[in-house]
């Protein structure tokens, strides 16, 4: 079974947010800042690697972004991804429609035929909730999103998602797109031999076709900073009676 995963290089979420002077991006110039993967996509990759460990086959990581995205592709190669395909863009962000169209055609046109595409339900940064769904429609495949449990038997993917206190079960025949959520598994850490092997694995670069953004970012803004100070009810177990008073005041305890 061959699995494609779609991943995205995103800024590490900082303790304190700041924007570039033109307010079009997160300021990543601070010394503590770096780049990483969306958590959902680390889980997407782990899910893909587990499937090929069980059934054989290969995992390919597709990423649309700047040339620096190879750093994230290499990270995933250290945990079992065989090959990377970079859809190289300039620094300007692509909107979800253009991103999904480019990823779908790269997956379709690739020399490998895929049985599954695994993505994160939404990216950590732009949080658009749609690239996986659009890829599924472009490929004409079914998609299950928000997946928190995944197994594949006999060409059928069984997916679980959480609704309230229930788990819903879906079954789709492959090929299919699966959009996972953080928590579907616990991603492994790369081993030293894994990192060494990763250096030699191939990354192909393709030039995707840009289209004008129809969801066009104008600028970013930060919400008003919380400057509130909490009313201290006390220190240690002696604070318990004051806690009870507050619970009564706000009507939680009657």
């Amino acid at each position: 079974m061959n699995v494609a995963v779609c991943i995205k290089r995103v800024p590490l979420s900082p303790g304190r947010w700041s924007l570039t002077p033109d307010a079009t991006a997160i300021d990543t110039s601070g010394s503590a800042m770096g780049w990483t993967l969306s958590p959902h996509e680390e889980c997407a990759t782990e899910a893909a690697v587990q499937l090929i460990e069980a059934d054989g086959g290969e995992v390919t990581a597709f990423s649309l972004g700047t040339a620096d995205s190879t750093e994230q592709i290499r990270e995933l190669m250290a945990v079992g991804v065989s090959r990377g395909v970079l859809l190289e863009t300039g620094a300007d962000e692509w909107d979800p429609q253009a991103t999904a169209a480019a990823l779908a055609s790269a997956i379709r046109d690739d020399a490998t035929t895929y049985d599954m595409v695994i993505v994160g339900t939404e990216s950590a940064d732009t949080s658009g909730y749609q690239v996986g769904v659009r890829i599924a429609h472009a490929l004409g495949w079914p998609i299950v999103t928000n997946v928190k449990g995944l197994s594949v038997t006999g060409g059928v993917a069984r997916c679980e998602r959480v609704v309230g206190t229930d788990r819903e079960v879906y079954e789709v025949s492959l090929p299919a797109v699966i959009a996972v959520k953080d928590g579907v598994n616990i991603p492994r850490y790369p081993s030293v031999p894994g990192r060494i092997k990763a250096r030699k694995k191939p990354i192909d670069t393709v030039a995707p076709t840009a289209t004008p953004a129809r969801l066009e970012k104008i600028r970013l803004a930060l919400p008003p900073q919380e400057t509130g100070t909490a009313t201290v009810l006390g220190t240690g177990p002696e604070a318990a009676p004051r806690v009870v008073e507050v619970l009564k005041e706000i009507g939680v305890l009657t």
Binding site: T235, P237, A239, P241, L247
Partner: peptide
């Protein structure tokens, strides 16, 4: 603390049993 309305400074291991006991008593 900058998001909270109220705060108790202390270790959960000692504070929580005291709060549970006080709430149980109040009920």
């Amino acid at each position: 603390m900058s998001f909270a309305d109220y705060a108790v400074i202390g270790d959960a291991a000692t504070v929580m049993p005291a709060i549970v006991e006080a709430v149980r008593a109040a009920k």
